[in-house]
Design a protein around this nucleic acid. Structure first.
Length: 455
RNA sequence: GUAGAUGUAGCUCAGUUGGUUAGAGCACUGGAUUGUGGUUCCAGGGGUCGUGGGUUCAAAUCCCAUCUUCUACCCCA
């Protein structure tokens, strides 16, 4: 058992059946992205560590997979450094590459590197695996696929509208009921300002984000542990209590609560504008202003999005937001972007749990031709060509095995039709077409078989 | 990084207070059926019980270590 080959923790193999289902998800998302005018790019699995480090917070840095330098990877280190054990300095000397942690940061790097070739606003999408050295658990893998779409080089809130529309569209097509949660970092900053802790924005939002999970009291407890005083907590209370109200009520109350915080009011105006753009359209899913929505990634500056499936217990299956200065870190200032990322693997798990994969997503070979060997086999090859010329996915069993084995093959692979072309058929000139579902058999000419299958 | 579970045939799992040769279902191979699968019947192959060590006359079973997988926390898609 232990000698059996295995794959690293948190990674998976995908069977043909699973790939068919995965491709259904990817194709659906791609279709929507292209409908909205996005174009595909790809970037390498590994990036320079300098590109990746420091973009995801301390936690993120820890979760980066680092690649050991090739050759003598210790050659830049000294005995003294090695004796001290693991440190960022040491890591720097033995590793200069890492596996990408998400698709947004490599995209920012791409934009800066290719800025002279790009036409702004630049709309790209990217469907590739990312890697995180996290502990695997439900809905969490070390290698998983993200499906990103970003618009960069435009401040317009029309882009935020487009993001919401794409989310709505994708989940409508996938037949998953979701709540699209939206919030704004500026509002969160305004709240932090109002309660007197503008510098503790991250601590406050991370705590607020947990309200659904741990309850109001535990959130306050966490805030106290972050040295936030009781006055501030009681000021925060009315914001927390807005949960459950309608979006317009929340906005109205918010405007009063937030007072004259400049940044907070800007955030409110942004959210209102996005809502007003979306007024024209009848969304299939609920759009909810959720003031407790924070999202950990530190580069978001404006709108933030998160999508949760209503019928399945699963973390967020899609998330994104506006980042005003992600390219700034790479030396290109004043370029704002907004993007979204679908978590394909979690969407897969949700569809599997809800049994929502359509039958058509697992369509394979349509016809199997039974192999009788000898001159019948030659004839079978001709039939094969004719079927494929009509775009009918077909295969000839490669050896003249027992009929039972060949039929079994068709059955196991859910091939709906089998053609028999043995000595009897060659004599009569009519082929036998068997419908594997009904068991019904007909003697037909090849042309009639084609029309039969195409229906 | 923290905590709790888990590992027995290709898969899903039984396996009693430690006691003959470790079982079942499904899957696989062959036959009943030399031109017919999905139903039925018969037969067969397949397991260093995750790995390493220990206790014992005797270990799948008890103890220790280690690895895997799963679940929760942190964080996140």
């Amino acid at each position: 058992m232990a000698q059996k080959p295995s794959i690293p923790k948190g990674t998976r193999d995908f069977s043909p059946q699973q790939m068919a289902k995965r491709n259904y998800i990817f194709d659906t998302i791609k279709e929507v992205y292209e409908l909205f005018g996005f174009h595909q790019i790809e970037t390498p699995a590994m990036e320079n560590l300098s590109t990746l480090m420091g973009k995801y917070g301390d936690e993120g840095d820890k979760l980066l997979f680092k690649i050991l330098n090739s050759g003598d990877y210790l050659k830049k280190t000294t005995e003294a450094e090695l004796a001290e054990g693991v440190s960022p300095q040491l890591t720097n000397k033995i590793s200069e590459k890492g596996l990408r942690y998400d698709l947004t940061v490599p995209f920012a790097r791409y934009v800066v590197q290719h800025r002279n070739e790009l036409q702004f606003p630049f709309k790209r999408y990217q469907i590739q695996p990312v890697w995180r050295a996290d502990r695997p658990q439900k809905g969490r893998y070390r290698e998983f696929f993200q499906c990103d779409a970003d618009i960069i080089g435009s401040n317009s809130l029309i882009n935020e509208m487009e993001i919401v529309l794409m989310i709505d569209n994708v989940f409508k097509k996938l037949n998953i009921d979701v709540v699209i949660k939206i919030n704004n970092r500026k509002i969160l900053a305004g709240i932090a300002e109002t309660i007197g802790y503008p510098d503790k924005l991250i601590d406050i939002t991370v705590a607020m984000d947990k309200i659904d999970k741990i309850g109001t009291e535990a959130v306050y407890q966490e805030l106290r542990s972050k040295n936030i005083n009781e006055d501030a907590i009681s000021l925060l209370e009315p914001f927390m209590n807005l949960q459950g109200n309608s979006n317009t009520t929340k906005l109205n109350c918010l405007r009063e609560l937030i007072g004259d915080s400049e940044i907070g009011n800007k955030g409110i105006l942004e959210v209102e504008e996005i809502f007003s753009f979306l007024n024209e359209y009848n969304l299939s899913n609920e759009l909810e202003l959720d003031l407790t929505l924070a999202r950990g990634l530190s580069y978001y500056t404006g709108a933030i999005f998160e999508v949760v499936a209503t019928e399945a217990k699963m973390g967020s299956i899609c998330g994104g937001g506006r980042y005003d200065d992600l390219t700034g870190i790479f030396g290109l200032r004043d370029v704002s972007g907004v993007g979204i990322s679908f978590g394909a693997d979690r969407i897969y798990d949700v569809l599997e749990e809800l049994e929502r994969f359509p039958k058509s997503s697992i369509k394979g070979t349509q016809v199997l031709i039974i192999n009788f060997g000898g001159k019948e086999e030659k004839e079978a090859i001709k039939i094969l060509h004719k079927l494929r010329n009509e775009n009918i996915a077909s295969e000839l069993f490669p050896e003249s095995a027992k009929m039972k084995k060949q039929m079994n093959y068709a059955n196991a692979n859910e091939i709906p039709f089998v053609i028999l072309a043995g000595s009897q058929e060659l004599e009569s000139g009519l082929l036998t077409l068997k419908n594997m579902e009904s068991g019904e058999q007909k003697a037909l000419k090849i042309e009639d078989i084609i029309t039969e299958i195409l229906n």
